[in-house]
């Protein structure tokens, strides 16, 4: 996540965030409805794979940010001035 925010992420990083989230909470994660994005609300509760409730709660803000404000993240990836961190590693 900080990689994306620092402008060093790739589109795969966003997918990975969602996928790791899906390992924590299988299935659709609950979120509010959004007319602009044409999303219907997914009701609570979430399903969880973890032993501890902190896992899904930690994922909750990540998920809503990624689902409801997707363009913001994509903008950080597409319109950036830095190179992706993987490429930095390779270049060194």
């Amino acid at each position: 996540m900080s990689r994306v925010v620092d402008g060093k992420g790739t589109a795969a990083d966003l997918e990975q965030l969602i996928e790791v989230g899906t390992s924590i909470c299988p299935g659709d994660f609950p979120h509010a409805s959004n007319e602009k994005l044409g999303l219907a609300a997914v009701p609570f509760p979430y399903k969880m794979n973890t032993i501890c409730f902190v896992g899904p709660s930690a994922y909750a803000p990540v998920n809503s940010a990624l689902v409801l404000f997707r363009e913001e993240f994509e903008a950080r990836i597409v319109k950036r001035h830095t190179i992706p961190v993987t490429a930095v590693g390779a270049a060194l």
Binding site: E19, V20, T22, S23, P26, N49
Partner: peptide
């Protein structure tokens, strides 16, 4: 998927 996620 869940099992692969855990191993990863």
């Amino acid at each position: 998927r869940a099992q692969e996620g855990i191993v990863e």
